[in-house]
Design a protein around this nucleic acid. Structure first.
Length: 798
DNA sequence: ACCTCCCGCCATGCT
DNA sequence: AGCATGGCGGGAGGT
C-alpha cells in the first residue's frame, strides 16, 4: 500500500509519469538504461536515461554524473585498463558493455571495486538532486527507483540516505520515500551539531584519547587499549547525557513508524562523526579516534577489537558519503608510529551555534517532557543514548513546522511540472562546449569547492524568479543563494551577538519567520540537559573577534585551500567556468556557492578560473596552505599534558564549555603536534575564523591522487600561512562577485514551504572564538606536547 | 600485509 | 507473513 502510494508520487527529478512498478522486472534493463545515460551525456547532451529524464535537475545531474565518471579514480582506472572512454567509467555502462565484450575486455569492463564504491554511488545519487532544491517542487525520492536507476542494491541506498538524513539533507516521508532538502538545512544542522559536540565535550574526549595515546607511547609497556576509561567517564557521567539525534523542524522524520526504528546507529554515528570535526580545531579526525569516541559513548566496556573494527567499517561508510558531499576529505596523519587514516573537514566553517541551539536549550528543557513523547516518535531514537534527549524542539516550533510541512506537502504534491525542460536546455547549452569533460571537471571542481567551503549562508532559494525559474528552480537557486550570500550575517552574526546565551533570544528567533537571509529552517535541538548546561559559550568574553571579517577569515583561507586542492583534478577545465556561457553549469557552480559568502568563493574562483596556469599554481599554493593549516605538524611537541588541563573533562558540571573546549583544543593540537606550544589556535568558531595559526614546523603532505600534486612535503612558515590566508581572505572578500544575483533575496518564497529562522544565524555564539584564545593561552602554557612529528597527507577519498 | 570497504546475510520491526 | 530497514562482519580488492 504505501508502496504503491509512494510509487505514485513522482519524483521531481524523474519524469513524473512513470513510475511503473513494472520496472523491477529486470535488472538488465535497468542497467542498460543507465548505461545509455552515462554514455549519452558525454556525447550527447540528451539524457537518455530514464532516470533523470525530465527533471529539472537533469542537467546538473548529468554534469555531476559525468564528473564523477571523470573522477580521478575512474580515470586512473581507465588508464590502467587502457580504457579511455570518456567517462564511461561508470559501472553501469560497463555492465552493458559486457555483453559485447569478451574475455579480457569483459573483465576490463567489469566494474572494479572502486566503481562500486559507496562514494561514487553517493555522487551519482547526489547528482540527481540539486543542492538547493526548490521547495515548491516535489522533491520526493523513491528509494526503489533510485536503487534501480543507479543499479545498486537498496541496501546501499540506505547507507547513503541514512547519512544524508543525519545532515537533514533528506527526511523520510514514508516507507520507501524520502524528501530531498539538499543543503538548505546543512548549515543549521552543522551549527547544531557543533553545539552538541561542544556540549558533549567531544573536544575534550579527543584530547583525552590523544593524551592516552601519547602516554602509551612513552610507556611502551602499556598495552594500548581501545577503550578509554576516561572517555567513558566523560561520557554520560559528566552529566552530559548522550545526545539525541539532532533534528530540524521540517526535516524531521515524518513517518513515525519508520522513525521509531531502533537506534539508527548509522545516523547517529554520522552526526557524531561530524561533530568531532566541528569541535576539533585542526578539524582533522582520525578514524581511530572517532571510533574510540563513538564506541566509548555506547559501551566502553565492551570495546573489543571486533567492535572497533566494525566501527571503523561504519565510519568508512559514513566518510565516503561525507566525502561525496565535500564535507570531508581523506588525509593521513603520520606519526612516528605510523600512518593513520584520518579525515579532514573541508566543509563550511560553522559558527558555533549557528543554530543557536545552545541557548535555546533552556526552553527545551521545559519542553522536553511534553515534547518528549512526540519527540520520541521523531527522533529520539537517533541518538539513542541514554535517555535524555539533549535536543529538542520548542513546541511552538513544532507547531509551526507541522503547519509548514503540511503546506509543503501540498505544494509538493501539487503537480509540479515543469522543470525539466529548462534543464534540458541548460544542459544542452553546456554541451556545446568544446570539451565537455573539461567543463564538467571544472564544474565539479567548483561545486566541490563551493560546497565544501562554506555554507554559511544558506540561502534559501527560492527562486522566485519568475517563470521559468521555478521549473528550474534548482538551478536558479544557486543564484539566489549567491545573492543571499551577501548576507553573511546569518552566519556571522555570531560575533555580533554576545555570547550570551540567551536561551530566550535564541528561541525567539526560531519562531520568527525568517529573515530573508535566514537559513532555512531553524531549529534547534536542545539537549535535555539544557538545564544544567550553561550556554556554552557564554562564559567568556563575548567579544567576537572578527565580526566583520568573518567572511574572509579563516574559512576562506583554509577551507578554500583545501577544497581547491581536493578538486584540482578538474581544474584544467576551469576555463569552462564562464558561467555566463553555460547556464547549466553555471548554475551548478552557483549553487555550490550558495553557502559561502560570496566574497570568498567568488574571489577564489575567479582567481582559479582565470587562467589555468595561474590557476594551477594557485591551486597548488592553496593546497600547500591547506596542508599547513590543516595539519600542521609540529615535530617537537611536547607532551604531556596535565591531565588537569581539562578539568572540565572530569568535572561533570556544566562548565562553560568553551573554555574547556578551547583549552582542549589547544591541548589537542599540541599533542598532535599541530601547533607548537606557543601557538594557539583559535577555535574556529566563527564562521570563518581561521583556526590555526600555529607555526608549523614541517608538514608533509601527500598529494592526493587527484593529481594534484606534487607535493609532498612542504614546509610552511606560519607567517607565510598567515599571509596567505590573509590574502586569500581578503581577496575572497573582494571577490565576492558572484555572478548573478539575480534575484533579490527576498525570497518570499520562504513562506511557502520553508521558514527559516533568523535566530539561528544570528545568534551564534561567537564567543567561542574569544574564549578559545583565552583558554588557549592559559592552557598552552601548561601543556606539553610529546615529541612526534605528524604528517598529514591527503589522499583522495576513494 | 594492511587498508578499505563491498556485499549481502539476517535480525529487527512495521504493515 | 511479508516487506522495509539496516546492523554487522566476512572476506576480497587495492596499494
Amino acid at each position: 500500500m504505501e508502496n504503491e502510494k509512494e510509487n505514485l508520487f513522482f519524483e521531481p527529478h524523474k519524469r513524473g509519469l512513470v513510475k511503473t512498478p513494472l520496472k523491477e522486472s529486470t535488472a538488465a534493463n535497468i542497467v542498460l538504461a543507465e548505461i545509455q545515460p552515462d554514455f549519452g551525456p558525454l556525447t550527447t547532451p540528451t539524457k537518455p536515461k530514464e532516470i533523470s529524464q525530465g527533471e529539472p535537475w537533469t542537467p546538473t545531474a548529468n554534469l555531476k554524473m559525468l564528473i564523477s565518471a571523470v573522477s580521478p579514480e575512474i580515470r586512473y582506472r581507465d588508464q590502467k585498463r587502457g580504457l579511455s572512454d570518456n567517462g564511461n567509467g561508470l559501472p553501469e555502462a560497463r555492465d552493458c558493455l559486457h555483453e559485447h565484450l569478451s574475455g579480457d575486455e569483459y573483465e576490463k569492463s567489469q566494474p572494479s571495486r572502486k566503481e562500486k564504491s559507496l562514494g561514487l554511488l553517493c555522487h551519482k545519487f547526489l547528482a540527481r538532486y540539486p543542492n538547493y532544491p526548490n521547495p515548491a517542487v516535489n522533491n520526493d525520492i523513491c528509494l526503489d527507483e533510485v536503487a534501480e536507476e543507479l543499479n545498486v542494491e537498496r541496501r546501499r541506498i540506505y547507507d547513503i540516505v541514512n547519512v544524508l538524513e543525519s545532515l537533514h539533507m533528506v527526511s523520510r516521508l514514508a516507507k520507501n520515500r524520502y524528501t530531498w532538502h539538499g543543503r538548505h538545512n546543512l548549515n543549521q544542522t552543522l551549527g547544531t551539531l557543533k553545539s552538541v559536540g561542544e556540549e558533549n565535550k567531544y573536544a575534550e574526549q579527543i584530547m583525552m584519547i590523544k593524551k592516552k595515546e601519547y602516554e602509551q607511547e612513552f610507556d611502551f609497556s602499556k598495552s594500548y587499549r581501545i577503550e578509554d576509561p576516561i572517555i567513558k567517564s566523560n561520557t554520560g557521567q559528566n552529566g552530559h547525557p548522550d545526545m539525541c539525534f539532532v533534528e530540524l523542524p521540517g526535516v524531521e522524520f515524518r513517518a513515525a513508524s519508520v522513525n521509531s526504528r531502533k537506534d539508527k546507529s548509522l545516523r547517529v554515528m554520522s552526526q557524531k562523526f561530524v561533530m568531532l570535526f566541528l569541535v576539533s580545531t585542526p578539524q582533522i579526525v582520525s578514524l581511530e579516534i572517532a571510533a574510540k569516541i563513538l564506541i566509548g559513548e555506547d559501551h566502553v566496556e565492551d570495546l573489543d577489537k571486533s567492535k572497533f573494527k566494525t566501527k571503523i567499517r561504519r565510519l568508512y561508510d559514513i566518510a565516503n558519503v561525507l566525502s561525496s558531499l565535500d564535507l570531508i576529505k581523506k588525509v593521513h596523519v603520520t606519526e612516528e608510529r605510523g600512518r593513520k587514516p584520518a579525515f579532514k573537514w573541508t566543509g563550511p566553517e560553522i559558527s558555533p551555534n549557528s543554530s543557536g541551539l545552545g541557548p535555546v536549550l533552556p526552553f527545551a528543557a521545559s519542553d522536553l517532557e511534553g515534547r518528549r513523547s512526540s519527540k520520541e516518535n521523531c527522533a529520539k531514537n537517533l541518538f539513542s543514548t541514554r535517555g535524555k534527549p539533549n535536543f529538542t524542539r520548542h513546541p511552538s516550533l513544532i507547531k509551526l513546522v507541522k503547519s509548514i510541512e503540511s503546506d509543503r506537502r501540498k505544494i509538493n504534491s501539487a503537480p509540479t511540472s515543469p522543470i525539466k525542460t529548462n534543464k534540458a536546455e541548460s544542459s544542452q547549452n553546456s554541451v556545446p562546449f568544446p570539451s565537455k569533460m573539461a567543463q564538467l571537471a571544472a564544474i565539479c571542481k567548483m561545486q566541490l569547492e563551493e560546497q565544501s567551503s562554506d555554507p554559511r549562508k544558506k540561502v534559501k532559494v527560492q527562486l522566485a524568479r519568475s517563470g521559468h525559474c521555478k521549473p528550474v528552480a534548482p538551478l536558479d537557486t544557486p543564484a539566489n543563494a549567491e545573492l543571499e550570500m551577501t548576507a553573511p550575517s546569518l552566519i556571522q552574526p555570531l560575533g555580533v551577538v554576545p555570547l550570551i546565551p540567551s536561551p530566550l533570544s535564541s528561541a525567539v528567533p526560531m519562531i520568527l519567520p525568517q529573515a530573508p537571509s535566514g537559513p532555512s529552517y531553524a531549529i534547534y535541538l536542545q539537549p535535555a540537559q539544557a538545564q544544567t548546561m550553561t550556554p556554552p559559550q557564554g562564559l567568556s568574553p563575548t567579544v567576537c573577534p572578527t565580526p566583520s571579517s568573518n567572511a574572509t577569515r579563516s574559512k576562506g583561507s583554509t577551507n578554500t585551500t583545501t577544497e581547491n586542492a581536493a578538486n584540482d583534478a578538474p581544474k584544467s577545465s576551469a576555463s569552462a567556468r564562464p558561467g555566463s556561457l553555460l547556464p547549466g553549469l553555471e548554475r551548478q557552480g552557483t549553487k555550490n556557492r550558495d553557502r559561502e559568502p560570496a566574497g570568498e568563493r567568488g574571489s577564489k574562483r575567479a582567481s582559479m578560473l582565470e587562467d589555468s596556469g595561474s590557476k594551477k599554481k594557485f591551486k597548488e599554493d592553496l593546497k600547500g596552505l591547506e596542508n599547513v593549516s590543516t595539519l600542521m605538524v609540529s615535530p617537537t611537541s611536547v607532551a604531556a599534558v596535565p591531565v588537569g588541563n581539562s578539568p572540565a573533562l572530569t568535572s561533570s558540571h556544566p562548565v562553560p564549555v568553551q573554555n574547556p573546549s578551547s583549552a582542549v583544543v589547544n591541548f589537542t593540537l599540541q599533542h598532535l603536534g599541530l601547533i607548537s606550544p606557543g601557538v594557539q589556535v583559535s577555535a574556529s568558531p566563527g564562521p570563518g575564523t581561521v583556526p590555526v595559526s600555529p607555526r608549523i614546523e614541517a608538514v608533509s603532505v601527500t598529494p592526493e591522487n587527484a593529481g594534484t600534486q606534487q607535493g609532498r612535503a612542504t614546509k610552511y612558515d606560519v607567517s607565510v600561512l598567515g599571509q596567505n590566508q590573509t590574502n586569500g581572505q581578503s581577496v575572497a572578500v573582494t571577490g565576492a562577485q558572484q555572478p548573478v544575483p539575480v534575484t533579490p533575496k527576498g525570497s518570499q518564497l520562504v513562506a511557502e514551504s520553508f521558514f527559516r529562522t533568523p535566530g539561528g544565524p544570528t545568534k551564534p555564539g561567537g564567543s567561542s572564538c574569544m574564549d578559545f584564545d583565552g583558554a588557549n593561552n592559559t592552557s598552552i602554557g601548561t601543556l606539553f606536547v610529546p615529541q612526534r612529528k605528524l604528517e598529514v597527507s591527503t589522499e583522495d577519498v576513494h
